[in-house]
């Protein structure tokens, strides 16, 4: 009869693993993906979730099973079995996690190289942060300076990010990519927006009193619309001599 409850424990843990896996994969974790990086990153996250569920369920099941099965009867002052260890078991739970994390690290590395790969025909966009706003320059568009961030769909963009004052972090959740802005450095991230729409540029690094409201918009538009916008903005910059006003919220 000794094997019977153990088999039941295995059964429960298999059921819990299946339910848990389905549950975490059904959850819509991420905001809408709007760049080519979103697909690989979201998939990587999902792949990480599966072994996570397996391990968590394993730990939970053993804890609950032991707490129920081996709980002392009232008045039982006896001791448990004097098991001091098992080399075989210890080798097993050193090796398996080692292989698991190594595999996941390699996968993570592959995805990293993939999303950071250089692309041809890249649009350079300068991003300059200051407490508590973002400004953008388009060196490819006659050094256009603007408070608006407008990007053509499907064209790779390289953001060159810097700051006038303290650390900030340039983040568009829908693009999945982020980099800190560091005084004295120009940090770079590459993004290929692939979904038209209007998203938030969020500051993700504490930068002072206005940090939580340091949000602006990024618009991803069709290439034609982008050209029209940049021509219009260049004209405005020339005639007015100033910067384009920020977009209305």
């Amino acid at each position: 009869m000794k094997g019977h409850p153990l088999a039941r424990m295995v059964l429960y843990s298999v059921i819990a693993t299946i339910v848990g896996t389905v549950l975490v994969l059904v959850i819509d974790w991420f905001p809408t993906g709007a760049s080519t990086a979103a697909g690989p990153i979201d998939r990587l996250y999902d792949v990480l979730l599966v072994p996570s569920v397996v391990i968590f369920v394993l730990v939970m099941t053993v804890v609950i099973y032991c707490a129920v099965k081996f709980r002392a009867k009232p008045g039982d002052l006896g001791d448990g079995a004097p098991i001091h260890g098992s080399t075989r078991l210890e080798i097993f739970w050193v090796t398996v996690p080692f292989i698991m994390v190594t595999a996941l690290a390699v996968y993570g590395w592959v995805v990293l190289d993939d999303i950071e790969a250089k692309q041809p025909n890249t649009l350079i966009v300068g991003v300059r942060a200051q407490q508590f706003a973002w400004r953008f320059t388009y060196p490819d568009e006659g050094d256009l300076k603007t408070n608006q961030l407008v990007l053509p769909k499907d064209r790779p963009v390289e953001f060159r990010v810097t700051t006038n004052d303290v650390l900030h972090s340039f983040w568009v959740p829908q693009f999945r990519l982020k980099t800190d802005t560091v005084p004295g450095l120009t940090t770079k991230i590459r993004v290929t927006p692939n979904r038209e729409g209007r998203y938030d540029v969020v500051c993700a690094e504490l930068c002072g009193i206005g940090h939580s409201t340091m949000r602006q918009a990024v618009r991803v538009v069709a290439p034609g619309e982008y050209s029209a916008w940049s021509a219009q903005a260049k004209k405005q910059q020339k005639t007015v001599g100033g910067e384009t006003p920020p977009e209305p919220e």
Partner: peptide, 28 residues
Amino acid sequence: MITTMLIAVPTGIKIFSWLATLWRGVIH
């Protein structure tokens, strides 16, 4: 990234060893 993930190995040893300590105990 690799060293960080490797810390899961000694930490895992601890978690699994505690679980094995529970096994066939007289649990209060």
